[in-house]
Design a protein around this nucleic acid. Structure first.
Length: 646
DNA sequence: TTAGGGTTAG
């Protein structure tokens, strides 16, 4: 009875998960579990969810949740489910969250604000951030109150989607609903703006929000400054970052390792600066971050010094510490030492997580050691670590980069035995297969993809076409490109750009010019990179008539054709060896592409294409260039000096 | 004194 007494007055203060578990066990053993009601069960689960990082706690929570229903016959309420969902959220287990959410509906338990907040967070982080808006609408329909935390989650979704206008929209919704943003909400909002800022003008908008915030008496915090400094760092604006850093000091906001990284101070130097100059007690995270930086800069002695400082400060190495050290060995191709650490870690009672397993398995695969890799996969599944999307994708990705095209197939087959490979994984395999094999091999994998009910869409074709191009198999690239169009799927800018580049690199002038027409046909505005590729090839192959035609087209469309011309004539002079220019190749490639092009020209929309394209150049092209990934932006930037600025 | 929030650790 004594234990029951303790449990009844269960105070989270001073009582850890171990104590609570002992008391709980006593209740089970004395057959007294039924004295607990739903609130008490919730309280117990609450203690565990806060201590989820302790090994075994997850299993205990599942046991308690089961006992609650089976032994004590207590019906879980919305809070119980919220706690369970929170547990799955911390474990990054979207499936668990969805099951809980579904069970709630089945049992007619009405979700509350917290339930939806967790759903928004989980879905936008692990699945489709586009669902955030749907969930928000659902909350309104079901009359579930929103709070400032709901909007923090919604901003988080906008940040993942990189959708600044949507964030502004949510901000207005929030004010209209009479909710006052707090510092967390503001930081989330500012983060969306700053992460998507391409220049100082964009970033200024984030700073304007801070001004508004200050007027309401909310002061920027370390996180606010870190968001901005990080933004400046990615823009390469070190002076401005330093300026902000000074501002921070004036306002008495202490930096952490991340702030220092933003102004270029890393590793041991950063750690010492934090302690000595700013009188900050470094956190566990600070130690790990600095150690990782030192290792990546090959400053091994510094890393060891940081590790010893960390231990002297009373921090034990955690999963991340081990992961950082193991990854340093893996980078050095030292799988032996990495595995030694893996053993040490388990002896140290630190539970390996999916990330650690992924790094090790990846390391073995990078060395073509499929057996060792899958031994670890088995080990992982035995220890109830989920074979998740991230791990599967990493495996396929690494295997697909191998010189040996059979590796990816072996890995894929083994993965198929364990789980249903996701769409990304299938597409990565297709990418690799298309590099080394023929159409039939690609078809085989397309069938597998279809068997798993994955949609075969533009991304799929992009994977295949990119793969075939990379493998130098241009006829295959064209085969899939045409098949894609036959299926009614249009290429996007990235794909068209890629295939043009591949053909231009191979000096396939006729094919390149044919693809050039596709910009016109699909109303995609070429960027400077595309233009230079095609013009350069025309010049190199002395297709002067085409060159003039293209320059004329560009001029009509409002591009600064002269700047391209200048650049090209430099090239021309270098390569002009007096060869007679070829005749107009149009006819030739019309012949080759006969059916295909005729079909296109029959389409009346082609007539209007010029008009449409003009519009695209001014409006859509701006947007599509924002959507390009960073690599593409860098490519484009290389040519920006030739772009006309109005 | 059941649950949710910002950046940045691997």
């Amino acid at each position: 009875m004594f234990s029951i007494q303790i449990l009844f007055s269960l105070n989270t203060e001073g009582r850890d998960a171990e104590d609570v578990w002992r008391d709980y066990k006593t209740l089970i053993n004395t057959n007294n579990l039924d004295i607990l009601d739903v609130t008490e069960f919730n309280r117990i689960l609450g203690v565990f969810v806060r201590n989820l990082s302790i090994p075994g706690v997850y299993g205990k929570m599942l046991t308690i949740f089961q006992d609650m229903r089976d032994l004590a016959k207590v019906k879980p309420d919305e809070s119980t489910y919220n706690i369970m969902m929170s547990m799955y959220l911390k474990r990054k287990d979207l499936k668990g969250i969805n099951i809980c959410f579904g069970d709630m509906q089945k049992q007619k338990i009405i979700p509350n604000t917290i339930t939806y907040n967790i759903m928004i967070k989980a879905i936008s982080k692990f699945s489709k951030p586009d669902t955030a808006m749907t969930l928000y609408r659902e909350m309104i329909e079901r009359k579930i109150k929103r709070n400032e935390k709901t909007f923090t989650m919604l901003f988080c979704a906008c940040s993942i989607k990189r959708d600044v206008p949507l964030a502004h929209q949510f901000y207005n919704f929030m004010l209209n609903e009479g909710l006052q943003p707090d510092i967390y909400t503001y930081n989330a909002y500012i983060n969306v703006i700053a992460r998507n800022a391409k220049d100082l003008t964009d970033l200024q908008k984030a700073i304007d929000v801070i001004k508004q915030m200050k007027e309401k008496g909310i002061k920027p915090t370390l996180v606010t400054y870190n968001i901005l400094i990080k933004g400046l760092q990615t823009m390469g604006k070190r002076t401005e970052a330093l300026h902000l850093f000074d501002q921070m000091e004036i306002e008495g906001v202490k930096p952490n390792s991340s702030t220092l990284e933003g102004i270029g101070i890393t590793g041991l130097q950063a750690l010492l600066k934090l302690r000595n100059t700013y009188k900050v007690t470094p956190s566990h995270k600070d130690f790990n971050t600095c150690m990782d930086q030192a290792l990546k800069e090959s400053k091994y002695n510094d890393a060891m010094e940081i590790l010893s400082h960390m231990q002297k400060s009373g921090f034990k190495p955690n999963v991340s510490t081990y992961s950082i050290l193991m990854n340093a060995h893996i980078r050095q191709n030292d799988m032996f030492r990495a595995m030694e650490l893996f053993t040490a870690m388990k002896n140290d009672n630190v539970e390996p997580d999916d990330y650690i397993y992924a790094s090790l398995i990846d390391g073995f695969l990078a060395h073509n050691n499929v057996e060792q890799a899958f031994k670890l996969v088995d080990h992982m599944l035995e220890s109830k670590v989920e074979l998740n999307k991230m791990t599967v994708n990493r495996l396929i990705d690494t295997a697909s980069k191998s010189k040996d095209p059979r590796l990816v197939q072996r890995v894929f087959e083994r993965i198929e035995r364990l789980t249903v490979p996701n769409k990304d994984a299938c597409e990565r395999v297709l990418w690799r297969i298309a590099q080394s094999y023929d159409v039939y091999a690609v078809e085989k994998y397309l069938k597998i993809m279809d068997k798993h009910n994955h949609m075969i869409n533009r991304e799929t074709f992009t994977a295949i076409i990119t793969g075939a191009s990379k493998g130098g198999n241009l006829p295959q690239a064209r085969y899939w490109y045409n098949l894609m169009i036959k299926r009614g799927i249009a290429p996007d800018h990235m794909l068209l750009s890629m295939i043009i580049r591949a053909h231009a690199d191979a000096k396939e002038i006729d094919k390149t010019l044919s693809f050039w027409n596709d910009f016109h046909y699909f109303s995609i505005a070429p960027d400077d990179d595309d233009i230079m590729y095609v013009l350069k090839l025309c010049a190199e192959t002395n297709h002067w008539k085409d060159e003039i035609r293209i320059l004329g087209q560009l001029k009509e469309l409002g591009y600064d054709a002269d700047s391209y011309k200048e650049k090209i004539s430099e090239k021309k002079q270098q390569s002009n060896d007096g060869i007679e220019p070829k005749t107009d190749p149009d006819e030739e490639y019309y012949e080759e592409y006969g059916e295909y092009l005729k079909a296109r020209l029959a389409n009346k929309s082609v007539i209007k294409a010029k008009e449409r394209m003009q519009k695209w150049v001014w409006n859509v092209a701006k947007i599509s260039s924002q959507r390009m990934d960073d690599n593409a932006k860098i490519r484009v930037e290389q040519w920006t000096p030739y772009r006309k600025h109005d």
